[in-house]
């Protein structure tokens, strides 16, 4: 691994290599620093500026007033507005609630699916997990769109239900919170199943046999052996659902109604319709703060589950 532990005669080759690790590492580092990390400084700066009818639509925090004089004006108005107006608070609360419930639904549906795949015969596992991942790679927008055709008042689901005589009047699912849950669970299920499957497939089967030898029934075995051992994968999967759902825009916009407010949707409206960049930036920072905690947890559980082989998932 370490080029500095090579044999004696390779030192001539290495004389030029001493600086080369940095020659390799510096390019991705620079790109990430400039285009991924620095932008957050500008988000902070613009969240503290004042909205204005200008191009771009805000007054810069740092302004040169006259020769050599620079004025720095911080405006906390956007943050005060966020905690003052119930619209923003209810959007934040609704995002947290939606993300929590969707994650719980993904666990309820995804766990049996991941468990079934992991306990299938070995030659079935790779094709099955590939089948689960394939929809993940097809257009996100199209997958949400598919549900619009199914859920709307005169859509596929209502036609089938009324055709079979199960319901008399069409169900009003479209443009409700229920439609948002369906859309989210559908779109994010593969994210949950994959890390959980990776953990389940590596479980130590001798423990199950030992439990069986000691007289534990299948259910006892599952709850005392399999479930506790799969917690790292379960948590990694849950975070991969929870974090992006908190910032979700497309699903509440297309499947939700006017009362399904979420941070992502409010941010989008503030930015594109109201041209209030400072408030949109402040919202982004609130969202980011809410996410840092679960992200730290994700890193912790990822290390524990040693989810190392994404090749299997492609």
């Amino acid at each position: 691994m370490n080029p500095f532990r090579l044999g004696q005669n390779s030192w001539t080759a290495l004389s030029g290599l001493a600086k080369s690790p940095w020659m390799v590492a510096i390019w991705p580092w620079l790109f990430i620093a400039v285009f991924f990390l620095t932008p957050f400084l500008f988000v902070i700066k613009i969240s503290l500026s004042e909205a204005a009818f200008a191009q771009p639509p805000y007054l810069d925090v740092v302004r040169s007033v006259s020769d050599g004089l620079v004025e720095i004006k911080l405006n906390f108005g956007s943050y005060l507005l966020l905690f003052d107006d119930s619209l923003y608070l209810s959007a934040i609360w609704n995002s947290v609630k939606t993300a929590l419930i969707s994650t719980a639904l993904c666990i309820l549906i995804g766990y049996p699916l991941a468990y079934s795949i992991a306990s299938s015969p070995a030659h079935w596992r790779v094709p099955l997990i590939m089948f689960v991942m394939l929809p993940f790679w097809t257009s996100f927008l199209i997958r949400v769109y598919a549900w619009m055709g199914i859920l709307k008042t005169n859509g596929l689901l209502n036609n089938v239900l009324m055709g079979l005589g199960i319901v008399d009047a069409p169900l009003e699912i479209m443009h409700t919170q229920a439609a948002v849950y369906i859309g989210i669970v559908y779109s994010y299920l593969p994210f949950f199943v994959l890390p959980l499957y990776a953990t389940l497939v590596r479980l130590d089967h001798t423990l199950l046999e030992a439990a069986a030898d000691l007289g534990a029934g299948p259910l006892t075995q599952f709850f005392t052996v399999t479930l506790p051992q799969s917690v790292p994968g379960l948590m990694a999967g849950a975070m991969l659902v929870f974090i992006p759902v908190m910032g979700e825009f497309v699903i509440p916009d297309l499947l939700g109604g006017p009362d399904t407010l979420m941070i992502g949707k409010v941010m989008w409206t503030e930015f594109f319709s109201n041209k209030d960049w400072p408030v949109a930036s402040a919202l982004a920072l609130v969202l980011l703060t809410l996410l840092i905690l679960p992200f730290v947890l994700l890193r912790y559980f990822e290390r524990r589950s040693e989810l190392e082989d994404p090749n299997e998932a492609v």
């Binding site: 990390l37 700066k45 910032g247 960049w277």
Partner: peptide
Amino acid sequence: FELSTAAPLVMPEIIIGLASLLLFVSMEK
């Protein structure tokens, strides 16, 4: 470095989008 390369995997797109735009606008200025 490892953390920074992995962070965009879970960062909501809407934050990446907004942050990138604000960077581009500020850089242009």
